[in-house]
Simulated scan of single mutants.
Amino acid sequence: MNLTPKQIVQLHGFNNLTKSLSFNMYDICYTKTREEREAYLAYIDEQYNAERLTNILSNVTDIIGAHILNVAKQDFEPQGASVTILVSEAPVDEKQVEAFEESPGPIPGSVVAQLDKSHITVHTYPEFHPDEGISTFRADVDVSTCGEISPLKALNYLIHSFETDVMTMDYRVRGFTRDVNGHKIFIDHEINSIQNYIPDEVKKLYDMIDVNVYQENIFHTKCKLKQFDLDNYLFGYSKKSLSTEEQISITDKLIGEMEEIFYGKNMINH
Protein backbone atom coordinates (compact mmCIF):
# COMPACT_ATOMS: atom_id res chain seq x y z
CA MET A 1 0.00 0.00 0.00
CA ASN A 2 1.50 3.32 -1.11
CA LEU A 3 0.15 6.48 0.47
CA THR A 4 0.14 10.11 -0.55
CA PRO A 5 0.81 12.84 2.07
CA LYS A 6 -2.89 13.71 2.12
CA GLN A 7 -4.11 10.18 2.90
CA ILE A 8 -4.60 9.74 6.63
CA VAL A 9 -4.63 6.07 7.61
CA GLN A 10 -5.25 4.94 11.17
CA LEU A 11 -2.40 2.68 12.19
CA HIS A 12 -2.40 -0.28 14.49
CA GLY A 13 0.04 0.99 17.11
CA PHE A 14 3.34 2.77 16.39
CA ASN A 15 4.59 3.57 12.88
CA ASN A 16 7.37 0.98 12.58
CA LEU A 17 8.76 2.16 9.23
CA THR A 18 12.44 3.16 9.31
CA LYS A 19 13.47 5.96 6.93
CA SER A 20 17.22 6.31 6.40
CA LEU A 21 19.08 9.08 4.56
CA SER A 22 22.80 8.75 3.92
CA PHE A 23 24.53 11.94 2.74
CA ASN A 24 28.13 11.55 1.56
CA MET A 25 30.14 14.60 0.43
CA TYR A 26 33.66 15.22 -0.91
CA ASP A 27 35.72 18.41 -0.95
CA ILE A 28 38.82 18.18 -3.16
CA CYS A 29 41.94 20.35 -3.01
CA TYR A 30 45.38 20.46 -4.64
CA THR A 31 48.28 20.81 -2.21
CA LYS A 32 51.64 21.18 -3.92
CA THR A 33 53.89 20.59 -0.90
CA ARG A 34 53.78 18.65 2.35
CA GLU A 35 53.45 21.91 4.26
CA GLU A 36 50.41 22.89 2.16
CA ARG A 37 48.85 19.48 2.72
CA GLU A 38 49.33 19.69 6.47
CA ALA A 39 47.88 23.21 6.47
CA TYR A 40 44.84 22.04 4.49
CA LEU A 41 44.22 19.12 6.85
CA ALA A 42 44.55 21.46 9.85
CA TYR A 43 42.07 23.86 8.23
CA ILE A 44 39.57 21.05 7.62
CA ASP A 45 39.94 19.77 11.17
CA GLU A 46 39.23 23.23 12.51
CA GLN A 47 36.41 23.97 10.07
CA TYR A 48 34.63 20.69 10.76
CA ASN A 49 35.53 19.93 14.36
CA ALA A 50 33.22 17.96 16.63
CA GLU A 51 31.70 21.11 18.13
CA ARG A 52 30.64 22.55 14.76
CA LEU A 53 29.43 19.16 13.55
CA THR A 54 27.31 18.89 16.69
CA ASN A 55 25.68 22.23 15.85
CA ILE A 56 24.95 21.03 12.31
CA LEU A 57 23.32 17.83 13.54
CA SER A 58 21.36 19.72 16.19
CA ASN A 59 19.92 21.89 13.41
CA VAL A 60 19.08 18.73 11.45
CA THR A 61 17.19 17.47 14.50
CA ASP A 62 15.17 20.71 14.63
CA ILE A 63 14.40 20.56 10.91
CA ILE A 64 12.99 17.02 10.99
CA GLY A 65 11.01 17.80 14.13
CA ALA A 66 12.77 15.53 16.63
CA HIS A 67 13.99 15.86 20.22
CA ILE A 68 17.59 15.24 21.25
CA LEU A 69 18.02 12.58 23.93
CA ASN A 70 21.78 12.14 24.00
CA VAL A 71 24.91 13.48 22.24
CA ALA A 72 28.35 11.87 21.87
CA LYS A 73 31.18 13.66 20.07
CA GLN A 74 34.89 13.12 19.53
CA ASP A 75 37.80 14.81 17.75
CA PHE A 76 40.41 12.29 16.62
CA GLU A 77 44.17 12.41 16.18
CA PRO A 78 45.78 13.06 13.80
CA GLN A 79 42.55 14.24 12.12
CA GLY A 80 38.84 13.59 11.77
CA ALA A 81 35.81 13.85 14.03
CA SER A 82 32.61 11.95 14.82
CA VAL A 83 29.28 12.94 16.35
CA THR A 84 26.28 10.77 17.18
CA ILE A 85 22.88 11.98 18.39
CA LEU A 86 19.97 9.89 19.61
CA VAL A 87 16.60 11.55 19.05
CA SER A 88 12.92 10.98 19.76
CA GLU A 89 9.92 11.77 17.60
CA ALA A 90 8.08 15.04 18.14
CA PRO A 91 4.28 15.31 18.23
CA VAL A 92 2.74 15.16 14.76
CA ASP A 93 1.05 18.31 13.45
CA GLU A 94 0.30 19.82 10.04
CA LYS A 95 3.93 20.79 9.54
CA GLN A 96 4.94 17.18 10.08
CA VAL A 97 2.47 16.03 7.43
CA GLU A 98 4.03 18.55 5.04
CA ALA A 99 7.42 16.94 5.72
CA PHE A 100 6.47 14.14 3.31
CA GLU A 101 5.84 16.49 0.41
CA GLU A 102 8.46 16.36 -2.32
CA SER A 103 10.00 19.79 -1.81
CA PRO A 104 13.32 21.10 -0.49
CA GLY A 105 13.57 21.60 3.24
CA PRO A 106 14.51 24.82 5.03
CA ILE A 107 17.90 26.38 5.73
CA PRO A 108 18.08 27.54 9.38
CA GLY A 109 19.06 31.14 9.98
CA SER A 110 21.46 30.69 12.33
CA VAL A 111 27.60 14.27 17.50
CA VAL A 112 26.07 11.34 17.81
CA ALA A 113 22.64 12.51 18.75
CA GLN A 114 20.19 9.92 20.02
CA LEU A 115 16.50 9.67 19.14
CA ASP A 116 13.86 7.22 20.33
CA LYS A 117 14.82 4.35 17.98
CA SER A 118 16.32 7.03 15.75
CA HIS A 119 19.77 8.54 15.38
CA ILE A 120 21.87 11.05 13.46
CA THR A 121 25.59 10.56 12.93
CA VAL A 122 28.48 12.25 11.12
CA HIS A 123 32.02 11.00 10.53
CA THR A 124 34.79 12.91 8.72
CA TYR A 125 37.69 11.45 6.75
CA PRO A 126 40.48 13.82 5.61
CA GLU A 127 42.97 12.00 3.36
CA PHE A 128 45.55 12.63 0.63
CA HIS A 129 47.19 10.95 -2.36
CA PRO A 130 50.71 9.70 -1.52
CA ASP A 131 52.42 11.57 -4.36
CA GLU A 132 49.91 13.31 -6.68
CA GLY A 133 49.24 16.41 -4.56
CA ILE A 134 45.52 15.65 -4.21
CA SER A 135 43.91 16.08 -0.78
CA THR A 136 40.32 15.01 -0.20
CA PHE A 137 37.94 15.66 2.67
CA ARG A 138 34.96 13.32 3.02
CA ALA A 139 32.05 13.60 5.44
CA ASP A 140 29.39 10.91 5.91
CA VAL A 141 26.09 11.90 7.50
CA ASP A 142 23.39 9.35 8.34
CA VAL A 143 19.90 10.32 9.48
CA SER A 144 17.75 7.34 10.47
CA THR A 145 14.24 7.90 11.81
CA CYS A 146 11.14 5.93 12.63
CA GLY A 147 7.56 7.08 13.04
CA GLU A 148 6.20 10.13 11.24
CA ILE A 149 9.35 12.26 11.01
CA SER A 150 11.18 12.37 7.67
CA PRO A 151 14.98 12.79 7.23
CA LEU A 152 14.54 14.13 3.68
CA LYS A 153 13.55 17.57 4.96
CA ALA A 154 17.13 18.00 6.24
CA LEU A 155 18.79 17.36 2.87
CA ASN A 156 18.77 20.96 1.64
CA TYR A 157 20.34 22.15 4.89
CA LEU A 158 23.06 19.45 4.75
CA ILE A 159 23.99 20.42 1.19
CA HIS A 160 24.46 24.04 2.30
CA SER A 161 26.45 23.07 5.42
CA PHE A 162 29.43 21.62 3.54
CA GLU A 163 31.66 22.78 0.68
CA THR A 164 30.86 20.01 -1.77
CA ASP A 165 32.38 19.00 -5.10
CA VAL A 166 30.81 15.53 -5.25
CA MET A 167 27.76 14.28 -3.34
CA THR A 168 26.27 10.81 -3.02
CA MET A 169 22.85 10.41 -1.38
CA ASP A 170 20.91 7.27 -0.51
CA TYR A 171 17.39 7.06 0.89
CA ARG A 172 15.64 3.86 1.90
CA VAL A 173 12.41 2.95 3.66
CA ARG A 174 12.71 -0.31 5.60
CA GLY A 175 10.29 -2.60 7.39
CA PHE A 176 6.53 -2.21 7.51
CA THR A 177 3.75 -0.92 9.72
CA ARG A 178 0.09 -1.98 9.86
CA ASP A 179 -3.26 -0.28 9.59
CA VAL A 180 -6.06 -1.14 12.03
CA ASN A 181 -7.17 -3.98 9.75
CA GLY A 182 -3.72 -5.55 9.83
CA HIS A 183 -2.73 -4.68 6.26
CA LYS A 184 1.01 -4.04 5.88
CA ILE A 185 2.18 -0.57 4.77
CA PHE A 186 5.70 -0.62 3.32
CA ILE A 187 5.99 3.12 2.59
CA ASP A 188 3.86 5.98 3.91
CA HIS A 189 4.65 8.70 1.35
CA GLU A 190 5.19 9.08 -2.39
CA ILE A 191 8.70 9.54 -3.79
CA ASN A 192 10.24 8.95 -7.21
CA SER A 193 13.64 10.65 -6.75
CA ILE A 194 15.81 12.22 -4.07
CA GLN A 195 16.21 15.11 -6.54
CA ASN A 196 12.68 16.23 -5.66
CA TYR A 197 14.05 17.33 -2.29
CA ILE A 198 16.90 19.39 -3.78
CA PRO A 199 16.13 23.03 -4.76
CA ASP A 200 16.37 24.00 -8.43
CA GLU A 201 19.18 26.49 -7.82
CA VAL A 202 21.32 23.67 -6.42
CA LYS A 203 20.42 21.19 -9.15
CA LYS A 204 21.57 23.69 -11.78
CA LEU A 205 25.09 23.52 -10.32
CA TYR A 206 25.51 19.75 -10.57
CA ASP A 207 25.46 16.89 -13.05
CA MET A 208 23.17 14.28 -11.45
CA ILE A 209 22.56 10.56 -11.90
CA ASP A 210 19.75 8.53 -10.31
CA VAL A 211 19.88 4.78 -9.66
CA ASN A 212 16.56 3.81 -8.04
CA VAL A 213 15.02 0.44 -7.14
CA TYR A 214 11.39 1.46 -6.73
CA GLN A 215 10.02 -1.97 -5.81
CA GLU A 216 12.45 -2.07 -2.87
CA ASN A 217 11.95 1.59 -1.84
CA ILE A 218 15.65 2.31 -2.46
CA PHE A 219 16.68 5.67 -3.99
CA HIS A 220 20.21 6.75 -4.96
CA THR A 221 21.41 10.08 -6.40
CA LYS A 222 24.96 11.24 -7.04
CA CYS A 223 26.06 14.75 -8.04
CA LYS A 224 29.20 16.42 -9.44
CA LEU A 225 29.81 20.14 -9.86
CA LYS A 226 29.48 21.28 -13.48
CA GLN A 227 31.74 24.34 -13.36
CA PHE A 228 35.46 24.08 -12.68
CA ASP A 229 37.67 27.00 -11.65
CA LEU A 230 41.21 26.01 -10.68
CA ASP A 231 41.45 28.88 -8.18
CA ASN A 232 38.79 27.17 -6.07
CA TYR A 233 40.99 24.11 -5.62
CA LEU A 234 44.35 25.68 -4.76
CA PHE A 235 45.12 26.09 -1.06
CA GLY A 236 46.89 29.33 -0.18
CA TYR A 237 47.71 30.63 -3.67
CA SER A 238 46.14 31.28 -7.07
CA LYS A 239 46.63 29.85 -10.55
CA LYS A 240 48.42 33.07 -11.60
CA SER A 241 51.50 31.78 -9.75
CA LEU A 242 51.55 28.63 -11.93
CA SER A 243 52.83 28.12 -15.43
CA THR A 244 50.41 27.11 -18.17
CA GLU A 245 51.79 23.58 -18.11
CA GLU A 246 51.31 23.35 -14.33
CA GLN A 247 47.74 24.64 -14.61
CA ILE A 248 46.89 21.99 -17.21
CA SER A 249 48.54 19.19 -15.23
CA ILE A 250 46.86 20.12 -11.94
CA THR A 251 43.48 20.60 -13.62
CA ASP A 252 43.72 17.12 -15.17
CA LYS A 253 44.53 15.58 -11.78
CA LEU A 254 41.67 17.35 -9.99
CA ILE A 255 39.07 16.58 -12.65
CA GLY A 256 40.30 12.99 -12.78
CA GLU A 257 39.88 12.68 -9.01
CA MET A 258 36.32 14.00 -9.15
CA GLU A 259 35.42 11.73 -12.07
CA GLU A 260 36.70 8.66 -10.23
CA ILE A 261 34.77 9.53 -7.08
CA PHE A 262 31.62 10.30 -9.07
CA TYR A 263 31.67 7.08 -11.08
CA GLY A 264 33.06 4.97 -8.23
CA LYS A 265 35.99 3.44 -10.11
CA ASN A 266 39.63 4.11 -11.00
CA MET A 267 39.83 5.61 -14.47
CA ILE A 268 43.52 6.61 -14.53
CA ASN A 269 46.57 4.43 -13.93
CA HIS A 270 48.30 5.87 -10.87
Rank of each mutant, 00 (worst) to 15 (best):
D229C: 14
M258C: 13
E201T: 13
M208F: 11
H67E: 14
E77L: 06
D200A: 15
G236W: 09
R172H: 15
N217S: 09
Q47E: 10
D200R: 15
V9F: 00
Q247Y: 14
I63W: 01
S103L: 03
D142Y: 06
M169E: 11
D93S: 04
A81N: 01
V97D: 02
N59H: 10
D229A: 14
D45W: 04
I107Y: 11
A66I: 00
P108T: 12
I261Q: 00
I44S: 04
T84H: 12
N192D: 15
I194C: 12
V83W: 02
C29M: 15
Y206C: 08
L86K: 08
K222Y: 07
S58W: 00
T221W: 10
T251P: 06
D188K: 08
V213C: 10
H129P: 00
V83T: 12
I194T: 08
Y125K: 01
I255R: 07
N2C: 10
Y237K: 13
I255C: 05
M167S: 12
C29P: 02
E216I: 03
T121W: 00
M1V: 09
I191Y: 02
G80C: 01
T168N: 14
L21F: 01
V173E: 05
D116L: 15
V92N: 03
A66S: 10
F219Q: 02
D116G: 15
N192S: 15
L69T: 11
S161E: 07
N196F: 06
H160P: 06
I63Y: 01
K95I: 02
Q79H: 03
E36V: 03
I134V: 02
V122F: 03
